[in-house]
């Protein structure tokens, strides 16, 4: 009881600290500061119709690089942990049951469509909502559906890591190319800018988003695959 009331006290203190932030919130009418610059000059400087993509990939490209690194580390640590725990995989019995026939057929029909949706989301990242992270997550969901409907199916860990490494290296390489050919790291002017609002515009943003999409997709697929492998009775 004492403990609960102490916790309540801590929580109240926290609420009192944050409450002025909520209470003194003033609604804005226009953008100010750096956001105004992005809104007014983003179209000329970056050429992406989706300003969030412009901020994520170009203006704050280093954040994205760090984020991809963190995700890679998380995926690697999860793989390591689950690997160590599988000490006796040889005699472990697999307890996967067959799914219903309807689900198998439906997954055969839907998985290519979900893959295409993921590809659409990251290829059109500079025009419509979405981008590499969302597209990668959708592709990982497609693989998760595949694993759910056919648990016996194995797919190779090697292919996942090869795709991941190649796209990661190419991402950094394109970033470095920006230093050589244009204004700085991850500058997107290394390719022609194209006409605003069409598929081939915004310089390197579509390419970078395709690479991020493949990388994030393979990382998340790796996490899901490792977790599924760990379900064996061991």
């Amino acid at each position: 009881m004492l403990r609960n009331s102490l916790i309540l006290l801590v929580l109240l203190g926290f609420a009192a600290a944050v409450f002025p932030l909520v209470h003194s919130y003033e609604a804005k009418d226009t953008l100010t500061g750096v956001a105004e610059h992005y809104a007014n000059y983003g179209k000329e400087e970056v050429g992406a119709a989706n300003l969030v993509s412009a901020v994520v990939v170009t203006y704050r490209g280093f954040d994205t690089l760090g984020e991809v690194t963190i995700l890679f580390l998380a995926s690697a640590v999860i793989g390591l942990f689950l690997k160590v725990s599988e000490t006796h995989t040889k005699d472990s019995r697999s307890v996967f049951f067959k799914s219903t026939e309807i689900l198998v057929t439906a997954s055969r029909l839907l998985v290519p469509m979900i893959m295409l949706l993921g590809a659409y989301i990251f290829i059109n990242g500079h025009l419509t909502p979405g981008g590499g992270f969302q597209g990668g997550a959708v592709i990982a969901s497609a693989f998760a559906l595949l694993l759910l409907s056919r648990p016996q199916k194995q797919f190779s860990h090697k292919l996942i890591s090869v795709i991941e490494s190649i796209s990661g290296i190419t991402f950094v390489f394109i970033g470095l190319l920006g230093i050589l050919l244009a204004g700085g790291f991850l500058d997107n002017h290394i390719f022609a800018m194209g006409k605003f609002g069409t598929l081939l515009s915004a310089g390197a943003i579509p390419i970078i988003y395709i690479l991020i999409g493949l990388k994030v997709g393979s990382e998340l697929t790796g996490i899901v695959r490792n977790l599924k492998e760990s379900q064996k009775v061991g």
Partner: peptide, 8 residues
């Protein structure tokens, strides 16, 4: 995307 994820 919503339609797809409720299914899964």
């Amino acid at each position: 995307v919503y339609g797809l994820l409720s299914f899964i």
